[in-house]
Design a protein around this nucleic acid. Structure first.
Lengths: 336, 336
DNA sequence: GCGTGACGTCGAAGCGCTTCGACGGGGGAA
DNA sequence: TTCCCCCGTCGAAGCGCTTCGACGTCACGC
């Protein structure tokens, strides 16, 4: 293994000079810097991560806690993970993968052993048991998602409440008077998963504000469940003309079910969804949707952490405004 | 931060004794060990990962390279990742997440800086550019998947060739004489992704061996594409009665398409698939399938690495035998 | 002409842990 | 009884890097 002293000798300087040339924490003359760079290249020097971490008390590693619970949509999680890794690399950091399963002990472990400098936590519950720990930890963290009491924490997410509202506003604007929300699987709400709850809040608030008749239906992520919900909706709300879907896997089956029940989309029924763009575009009838900006959220989460690591204050809450993309699944309500 | 010297002082022993008590690398009397354990608990001691890595030249971190290419099925990747993390934790290791994007440089970086002790590489191509690097690296690695020349590497995967064969054998055993393989998206084959290729090999070999008429159809992962393939199959192979699907997202749409074209499954058409069990079971007509044993592959990959890290020799190739689970989508061919 | 910084570099002291060699004491073999 | 060896423990020497204080040099202002 080639070490910093080898580089120093080769370049005819002291190890500390090499270190400063690398970190830029003290001025080094252009000429010396060049010489050191050449030696590094020639010898193929790579600083030892452990030694660096020990001496600088910075590991340049971030922890990412990914959920693997029932009812969450895996591709979205993966998108977050990838965007976090990519963003972290831009800041010369790596990402350690933790599963939800490890729970609080896992967080404490990687933080206390100084394996990681900071933490990113996904799939936050409204009353997440990890919150006290995260507040107490001596390492900065960012939550992707909002708990009920985000005080003292740094959180970022799509503004799901606004997303729920926006879907309804759009339907109301198109003249729809009876709307329904087909939501995530029941267990997601039972757990108090924040983002799902907030969609419901927004949906309901906007429906009330606009004087719409509305209902909310959690739904398992299976085509069979989608069909049953469709049938139930027709039965219970025969005047229904607007549907908001917040459940990726059943978006397509649900639309199929409606059509098989004789409802054309968007002729008889307008559908909006909160889901990744790829999905909304991939359906037979492309769906008007609000995307989950996973790339942006991941990148911004990392930026927030970097700022915190740098000692800069950051806002506690970052809510990304929803943006609705008009596609083929929405239309004005047909004259009654 | 509480360190090993604090524990030592508190327990009335030397730091090295604490270290040995923790690692078990030298005998320590039961009594002393108890005392040390108590001190550790009381003080909340956690060994500093960087210091440990520096002194022992072991970071207890594994790198996992996940693919994020077009055409791969994300949930399966996630399953692998989770099972790797879980298995790694059982061996007191953590997992660093690398994206394919980082490529060879990323592998070299984490290996050369001693950030990780060993590497797990997914989504191996038949002629993967990373192979020479992996062979040359001073750290052990395991590939999930088989390249064309696996010599000098440690590889593990489901035996996809046998899986392809098994699907055909099963269909042949049920009396089917004309079969088709609906495969992964074309780009997967173009890239030479090993597992996809091997399914084709196995499928073709078994079809020939059994004297079946057969054809192979790569297929985009969209319902529209599924429908087009279904129509094409009916047109080109009107006598078709057996289909093997190796493309998770279109399994259900494809069956729907067949039924809409008037073919009942399994009445007119028997379908087998290579896909996760959850998917096979979630379809309206549960599909006879060969599961991708991601949990087992991930766990075994980690075991292999641990053995290699321990200096034990391991077999170069580990092929997991496919196991076919009979479900509702297969039946004997109707009398002609 | 001399004090004063700023600049560029060096040396040394750790960071917290593991590990190697050494050592005292007790028990078994001779 | 003597010798040897093993068990349990200690002390010290690093692991490879960063960082702090110090030092010489040079340019500048007065």
């Amino acid at each position: 293994m080639v070490k910093i002293t080898d580089v120093a000798r080769h370049a005819g300087v002291s190890p500390s000079t090499v270190s400063y040339a690398l970190s830029g924490k003290r001025p080094i003359s252009e000429e010396t810097r060049q010489r050191i760079a050449a030696s590094i290249r020639e010898l193929g020097y790579r600083p030892h991560a452990g030694a660096r971490a020990l001496a600088s008390s910075r590991s340049n590693v971030l922890a990412l806690v990914v959920p693997l619970r029932a009812g969450i949509h895996v591709p979205v999680v993966m998108q977050f993970a990838v965007s976090v890794v990519t963003a972290a690399r831009r800041h010369d950091h790596d990402v350690l993968l933790l599963t939800q399963e490890e729970g609080e002990d896992g967080l404490r472990r990687v933080a206390d052993t100084a394996l990681v400098d900071a933490l990113i936590v996904m799939d936050v519950q409204l009353h997440d048991p990890r919150l006290p720990l995260l507040r107490a930890l001596d390492r900065p963290s960012v939550l992707i998602g909002f708990p009920a009491t985000p005080e003292g924490l740094t959180c970022i997410d799509l503004d799901f409440k606004a997303a729920g509202e926006l879907c309804v506003e759009r339907l109301a604007g198109l003249g729809h008077r009876v709307v329904a929300l087909v939501g995530s699987p029941p267990e997601v709400y039972v757990r108090g998963t924040a983002f799902a709850q907030r969609v419901v809040e927004g949906f309901t608030a906007a429906a009330d504000r606009n004087g719409l008749a509305s209902s909310v239906h959690p739904c398992e992520a299976s085509p069979g469940a989608a069909r049953r919900v469709a049938e139930q909706l027709l039965r219970e709300q025969p005047a229904l003309t607007g549907v908001v879907v917040h459940n990726e896997p059943i978006l397509e089956p649900l639309i199929d079910a409606f059509e098989q029940l004789g409802l054309r989309v968007p002729g008889d029924l307008s559908v909006t969804a909160i889901c990744p763009d790829e999905l909304a575009e991939g359906v037979r009838v492309p769906v008007t949707s609000i995307a989950i900006p996973s790339a942006e959220v991941g990148a911004r989460a990392v930026e927030l952490l970097m700022k915190k690591l740098g000692g800069t204050d950051v806002p506690e809450a970052t809510l990304l405004a929803p943006r609705l993309t008009e596609r083929a699944s929405t239309a004005c309500r047909a004259a009654p």
